[in-house]
């Protein structure tokens, strides 16, 4: 079985191809574009998806920052999702959101085709992220293999 066919809770939704570690990004907008790039490259979202996320954040605030150093970039299915998939990006240097400069390093980017199909995988990932000690370790990941193994 190739990496691209791996399954989480029965849904092929996170492959190692879509996991990446980067040094930094210029600002939060660039960070969002970088995070969505693997999903775009592999045909899971349309080109406009990343810009839709950016415009959602501009109008609603940084609702995607869900915990310390954790962001969950996503938009609605009708905003350019082709197929449900998750990508994971770790920035070594914090990316700051909003006027309060909320920091994030781990970006779990979500493309959801409907209201249901991604929930099992997201539940699984949430379980991982609930453990503060594990999150500390995840943030220290040096390579993609290490980062990927926390989530599958």
């Amino acid at each position: 079985m190739t990496e691209r066919n791996r399954f989480i809770m029965g849904i092929e939704i996170l492959s190692k191809d879509n996991v990446q570690i980067l040094e930094e990004a210029k600002d939060w907008k660039e960070a969002i574009r970088i995070c969505i790039k693997p999903l775009e490259r592999h045909g899971f979202v349309e080109e406009r998806y990343k810009e839709e996320i950016i415009s959602n954040i501009e109008s609603l605030g940084p609702y995607i920052v869900i915990g310390p150093y954790i962001a969950l970039p996503h938009a609605r299915p009708e905003q350019g999702v082709i197929k449900s998939q998750i990508s994971i990006t770790l920035f070594k240097k914090s990316i700051y959101f909003g006027k309060d400069e909320i920091p994030a390093k781990l970006f779990v980017s979500l493309a959801a085709k409907d209201n249901e199909s991604h929930l099992d995988a997201l539940a699984n990932i949430t379980e991982v992220l609930q453990n503060e000690e594990v999150v500390k370790e995840i943030l220290k990941s040096k390579d993609v293999d290490t980062l990927y193994q926390y989530f599958h």
């Binding site: 954040i57 609603l60 996503h74 979500l110 209201n115 929930l119």
Partner: peptide, 12 residues
């Protein structure tokens, strides 16, 4: 904002 990511994490 979207009703399928953050809100679900909170529901859980």
């Amino acid at each position: 904002g979207s009703g399928l990511g953050t809100s679900f994490v909170m529901e859980m």
